[in-house]
Nucleic acid binder design. Structure first.
Lengths: 209, 209
DNA sequence: GTCTATATCTAGATAGAC
DNA sequence: GTCTATCTAGATATAGAC
């Protein structure tokens, strides 16, 4: 508030570098196998200096999750500019297919983080990754609702589950082609929706599809 | 070799207990967060004694994977007694739904293990969990082939990916209901197959499963 | 604000007594 | 064959010099 002569100019830069490095390295190596030295080295910051910007390792994990969340928000924000909700969903699948090589090597950044954090018994970060996945579900649900499809929430769950499933399989079997084939199948599924019912209401069919 | 008066009677028992405890605890806590003391305690074996049965921690992880593989083989072996391949697949999905609570808390044992091991850069165990998933894919592929459906391998990938996806989502969002709803959807999908193409012959296929 | 040196703690692994 | 005591490495975190 007082006139501080921007003493944190380079400091903020280092914090940003550490956050970006954490997001990348934690995705590649997982939380438990990654040391602070790994992140510091990737960010080109002296090891001991990390604690000036982040009090604990978990704070860095939280920062990485925020990074993923912001990245997702930016991506969906761009997709929102497309006029048709169905085209937005299909474009998202295309994005995933485009990242098939990294998915086959390291899996979905948020999904694999969720798997690892869910193993925690203490209530520290075990649900934080789930929130980011929930953010994606919410966005997808909005698209399905805008399309007038019945059960938009369940459709969104199915949609995101398909992405997580194909990412895990591509990763476990080290086959990027799984992303391509399952992605195409997912797009077909999006196209098939409402082709059956067409009209909006859908009397009383909670099962959908 | 000589007539040893079964000195390994209790020894073999302890090894079995350690393997079973490893499978359970590694599923619940993950590999990196689980200590040898955790496994020893769960197996009711003194901590230092573990090394008499397993040279390294990774040996215990491998033993847990073998346990999961054997469990899967036993399960599919029972399903193979059903006359119709489609019923076998549907019965498997029912089994998964029946385990929804543990899936929502800890995820699929093999799938979460695969996610964690895939993060390893060294070539130690990073592909071992993928082999167990491949074992499931192979079994499912046999069923689809026996049904005379085109592209049985890809169908098997889709099938297992759906399972992994719904397990991960149920786990990340802590909602067992996802297993129920997505499981029902998966069964509907199985029923819908071949409704399109009707089955092309494959009348007497000697290779079939 | 930045960084080095170091304290502390934990877990994997081993030596050797019983 | 069983178990205890201990060694050692490495990682988080801190104290304090610059």
């Amino acid at each position: 508030m007082t006139d501080s002569p921007r003493p944190r100019a380079r400091g903020a830069d280092k914090r940003r570098r550490l956050t970006a490095a954490a997001a990348r390295v934690l995705h590649e190596q997982g939380v438990e196998r990654t040391t602070l030295a790994d992140i510091a080295h990737a960010a080109d910051v002296p090891v001991g200096n990390v604690y000036y910007y982040f009090k604990t390792k978990d704070d860095l994990v939280q920062a990485a999750l925020s990074e993923h969340s912001a990245h997702l928000a930016e991506l969906t924000g761009r997709l929102d500019e497309l006029p048709d909700p169905r085209e937005r969903l299909k474009a998202l699948v295309e994005t995933w297919i485009g990242q098939r090589d990294v998915a086959a090597r390291f899996g979905c950044p948020t999904g694999t983080l969720a798997v690892e954090l869910d193993k925690r018994a203490d209530g520290t970060l075990d649900l934080e990754a789930g929130k980011v996945i929930g953010q994606l579900v919410d966005w997808a649900e909005s698209q399905f609702r805008e399309l007038g499809l019945p059960g938009p929430h369940d459709l969104a769950i199915t949609f995101v589950a398909a992405y997580q499933g194909m990412s895990l399989m591509a990763n476990a079997l080290r086959e990027p082609g799984i992303m391509t084939r399952e992605g195409a199948r997912l797009i077909d599924w999006l196209d098939s929706l409402a082709a059956t019912g067409d009209r909006v209401p859908a009397p009383a069919d909670p099962t959908g599809s």
